[in-house]
Design a protein around this nucleic acid. Structure first.
Lengths: 235, 235
DNA sequence: CGAGAAATTCGAACACTGTTCGGGTTGATA
DNA sequence: TATCAACCCGAACAGTGTTCGAATTTCTCG
């Protein structure tokens, strides 16, 4: 009954280890599904246990508590959002800076609308217990989301716009946060149905474009939103 | 059975009615306290029952379900935020337009930081059941928050900034939403501890000021943030 | 291979939650 | 005062997270 197969006799993965790894994926997948369909309140041990065919008590072999499961879900959501942004910006690596600067927010918004539960899990405190520790892994995941966009911004440092008589050291960072605030504000409002009475996509494109231009960056090309949409669907 | 009273010796409030009214306030106050201290998960019938000295079952005389209590809390939060913004803008009614336009976001942010639970209850979907009906009372409460700021913006329609060659009818509304997105984005990020690594107040003032100026509006005066802080504390 | 150790699973139980129901008690009304 | 609705409560049901002990399966190593 020993698994002599594979090639040589080195056991890179024991049978238990593989099942544990697969079950971890099943658990988090089901938890994510419940989160997206019914919100955080719908994520329950017993619902997950029914889905994966285990007893609720057995799940404590994989996570010490429900908060730990949410923490894992939170970190995965960070990574997924960062990967979505990075993939989009990377796909338009040859485009002009203005285009690349618009693609980031577009991917940001697109992922958020397709993963509302995870987006809210990231950006609004829903778990009473959890607060981000200063050296914790969430701050790294935080900056990973904006690394691609910051890189583009760094190539055009603050240009001429506004009060740049004296070169303040934090001016660039402040401008970056301001840029973030624009497309994050629009995104979170749309995600939570606070822009249903408007043409949200149109406003998003117009405002982000306007913000980029006012900052003195080269403006994005005309049909970029369509190009992004096409690329997004073929992926 | 016709209530013939109206003016004279009629009992303007029966004893039971007064107690019911007071208990309604006690219930919502305690629910709000629990919401601010422990989030939505901490708001439970039994905790409220312990606080007000009633049985959990008795509370169903006042609300048909916990969702109804949250709906009431949501509507009250809308009203409180709107009142805070309106009071601040009203207190600076004699100031210049740029000042009045900055006071609104300042009050918005200030209230949000002091009432994080209610702010998140308003702007992120936390109750799986509730969605805003098109004619519901939340849309009215929504616009009530921005009525004072929209009024100031309407006095200076879009000015000259940017692409106003042709006068698009929705341009003003889009600009208003863009303005909202800036200070709402910064506020919701700060409320949920995503700007702890920055000088959040400084960024808020700089970015909102910059946005106002780029829109061609008269800039706010120098010590306005201090003036608002003073007014806020003496209220 | 076979014995001991470790990991995994499960059922039962505890404390907590929202909600319903039946029967009392109290207050307003005529 | 008599009636009736409003109010309050205890008990109960179904659901939740979590713990514990025992049974079972799997890995490890002599």
């Amino acid at each position: 009954m020993t698994d002599t197969d594979l090639d040589d006799e080195a056991k890179p993965e024991t049978r238990r280890a593989r099942q544990r790894r697969e079950l971890l994926v099943e658990i988090t997948d089901e938890a994510r599904r419940l989160l997206e369909t019914g919100g955080t309140a719908a994520v329950s041990w017993r619902a997950i246990a029914r889905a994966v065919g285990l007893s609720p008590a057995s799940l404590y072999t994989y996570f010490d508590s429900l908060d730990e499961l949410f923490t894992e879900l939170l970190l995965q959501s960070y990574g997924r959002l960062a990967a979505a942004v990075e993939a989009a910006v990377g796909a338009f690596a040859d485009a002009q800076p203005g285009d690349r600067l618009l693609v980031g927010p577009l991917a940001y918004r697109s992922w958020a609308l397709a993963n509302r539960g995870q987006f809210n899990l990231i950006f609004t405190d829903q778990l009473p217990g959890y607060v981000a520790k200063p050296g914790g892994p969430t701050v790294e995941a935080q900056v990973a989301i904006f690394r691609p966009m910051i890189a583009v911004l760094a190539e055009h440092p603050e240009s001429d716009s506004g009060q740049s008589a004296v070169k303040m050291p934090d001016a660039d960072r402040e401008a970056d946060v301001g840029f973030w605030a624009v497309f994050h504000g629009l995104t979170t409002l749309e995600v939570n149905h606070h822009l249903d009475w408007t043409d949200a996509p149109q406003i998003f494109e117009t405002q982000v474009r306007w913000f980029i231009e006012q900052r003195g960056l080269p403006s994005a090309s005309e049909g970029l939103v369509e190009r992004f949409t096409d690329w997004s669907q073929n992926t």
